[in-house]
């Protein structure tokens, strides 16, 4: 943490953290004047927000549906299939994406050509990537979230369902009035944890799916990939550190604000 001062220095490897000269806010100025500060911040927060909403809706509905469905083995099979991608690394996911979407022999283009449509150059079309990224995010994380929600639903007292049944509640009514309120605390905790990380992009995902494809940066560059490139490709230690510090401050501010809000609305759900 003490390394934060790198953000205010012109770092050189030889002089080390303490020995490097101070440059004040020069690194931050560099970052903000690059014109990318707003872009990467917006991308990071927007992507995480959309991932959060989409994944949560899918996880919750899948958990409820899987819990109520009749049958046993096919249900378990479906659950395993959804969970499977969670165990795959982003490296392999990136290779899969490349094989799906690349222009020359990707599966999607092969399919498009075979039904007589013209192929799409995905790696040249930034506008398509928000959808692809949302798909891959859901692909990889929904299985895990579904299991978490399933565990939470399994913990609901079954007597409540029986009582509701006797009172004549329909299946939908039972879901809306018993299951959903019962998983609310779990959902709020999960959402709060996600919100606390909303300014941190999923580096593995963006790096492995996009790589250093500069054409797509406008739509896909997040703070983490930006900072990473500044560090490894450009060796701009000072600016990369400034970006990192900016991200940390942003995260901290967001989580503090959310916590205050949650405390006001629903005190028992606050994180701290």
């Amino acid at each position: 943490m003490a390394g934060i001062i790198v953000a205010f220095k012109s770092y050189s490897y030889r002089d080390g953290i303490v020995g490097s000269p101070w440059v004040g806010l020069e690194n931050f100025r560099f970052f903000f004047e690059s014109g990318k500060a707003w872009l990467v911040t917006k991308n990071t927060v927007m992507y995480n927000f959309i991932f959060m909403i989409v994944n949560n809706v899918l996880e919750l509905t899948f958990a409820i549906v899987l819990f109520e469905l009749a049958g046993k083995y096919f249900k378990r099979f479906l659950q395993s299939v959804i969970f499977l991608p969670y165990f795959i690394s982003w490296v392999v996911a990136g290779a899969i994406a490349y094989n799906l979407f690349n222009f020359e022999f990707g599966a999607v283009n092969t399919l498009l050509e075979s039904i007589g449509l013209s192929p799409v150059n995905f790696y040249n079309t930034p506008g398509l990537w928000p959808y692809i990224l949302v798909y891959f995010s859901a692909w990889k994380t929904v299985g895990y979230g579904t299991v978490v929600y399933l565990a939470s639903i399994a913990g609901i007292d079954t007597e409540m369902y029986e009582a509701a049944k006797i009172d004549g509640a329909s299946l939908m009514q039972r879901i809306i009035h018993i299951t959903v309120p019962s998983v609310m605390p779990t959902m709020i905790i999960l959402l709060l944890l996600k919100v606390s990380q909303i300014a941190r992009g999923d580096f593995g995902m963006f790096y492995q799916l996009i790589g250093s494809n500069g054409l797509l940066y406008d739509k896909t560059d997040v703070i983490d990939t930006f900072s990473f490139r500044a560090l490894l490709d450009l060796q701009e230690f000072g600016m990369a550190a400034a970006v990192g510090l900016y991200q940390s401050v942003l995260c901290f501010a967001i989580i503090m604000m959310t916590n205050v809000t949650v405390k006001k609305v629903r005190n028992e759900s606050a994180l701290f």
Partner: peptide, 15 residues
């Protein structure tokens, strides 16, 4: 919640 970020961490480990 709050960390030094990539760079200080990298320098710490490498140097």
């Amino acid at each position: 919640l709050f960390s030094g970020g990539l760079v200080p961490w990298y320098i710490l480990i490498v140097k």
